[in-house]
């Protein structure tokens, strides 16, 4: 590590900076544009120095019903994640500790469902939802997000659970623990860091989801993804408005991510440290 010569060190540092700037630039540009006027944001010459305006934010927050969409995003992301964890914990438990001949196959099969393009099931689901009156509802979207994230949640939980030594569960079994006791009192607290980071990941995935939101919701059940895409309207290009809306829609998850960073890292390295 420390054997690098000083020109080498500078080179590596420069490269790291360059990559970071490249990766961060779109976000930077997004935020910058959100403080421009629509005209300036759409201008051919990129402007870096200008007098900022909050007009787009006012437009988004006051005139465009931001809070309605944001609330739907919270409902669907949190709701689907809770459902995923409630369903995923027992599923992962059985796969980690009650293995059968078909366990590995089931795990692979669940993951393989993620390889199917969502468009493939759009029409059937649309029709079913229409008949069930679930179109344009937060509940309908929540159910889809649950189905969408469940395979990943089960997989992740399964890998965390596998790190819990089987003898601990057997000791609990001898001590008189029922299946529910085992899940609730032993496995869940032991794998808690893993469960929490899995949940955070599921929230992020649901929060950023756009395909289903745009296709099966419109107003009532629509999330921030729909809100943002609404700015790409026939009325013309409102780059600044759209940038402000985008910023506002990724902001909550970024802030949440910032605060839970430590937890995420702890969860992702859980097991390695034990």
């Amino acid at each position: 590590m420390n054997k690098m010569s000083w020109p080498g060190k500078i080179g590596v540092n420069l490269l790291a900076w360059l990559v970071s700037i490249l990766m961060f630039f779109p976000i930077f540009w997004l935020i910058l544009s959100s403080f421009k006027t629509n005209a300036l944001a759409a201008a051919r010459e990129p402007a870096f120095i200008f007098s900022p305006t909050m007009a787009s934010y006012v437009n988004a927050l006051v005139n465009s019903n931001y809070w309605h969409y944001a609330l739907n995003s919270v409902y669907t992301a949190v709701g689907s994640t809770l459902l995923c964890v409630v369903l995923g914990v027992p599923a992962a438990y059985s796969m980690a500790f009650r293995r059968s001949k078909r366990t590995d196959f089931t795990l692979l099969w669940m993951l393989s469902t993620k390889m199917l393009p969502a468009v493939g099931v759009l029409v059937p689901i649309y029709i079913v939802y229409k008949n069930l009156h679930l179109l344009d509802s937060a509940l309908g979207l929540t159910l889809i997000y649950t189905a969408m994230n469940l395979p990943i949640v089960v997989w992740l939980l399964y890998t965390y659970f596998k790190d819990v030594p089987g003898e601990i569960l057997e000791a609990a079994e001898i001590d008189g623990a029922s299946l529910v006791d085992n899940i609730v009192r032993i496995v869940t607290p032991l794998a808690l860091p893993g469960i929490i980071s899995t949940g955070l990941l599921a929230i992020v995935l649901a929060w950023n989801e756009a395909f289903w939101a745009i296709n099966i919701t419109n107003v009532h059940g629509a999330t921030l993804s729909v809100f943002v895409s609404g700015f790409k309207s026939a009325r013309g290009q409102f780059w600044a408005n759209m940038s402000a809306a985008s910023t506002l829609s990724v902001l909550p998850i970024l802030v949440a991510g910032w605060f839970t960073q430590r937890q995420l890292v702890r969860g992702l390295t859980f097991g390695a440290v034990k």
């Binding site: 003898e167 601990i168 057997e170 000791a171 609990a172 001898i174 032993i186 607290p189 032991l190």
Partner: peptide, 13 residues
């Protein structure tokens, strides 16, 4: 019965 395991199998939490 009560069992003592080689790994002790104490509840870590």
């Amino acid at each position: 019965i009560a069992m003592v395991f080689q790994s002790y199998a104490l509840y870590p939490h």
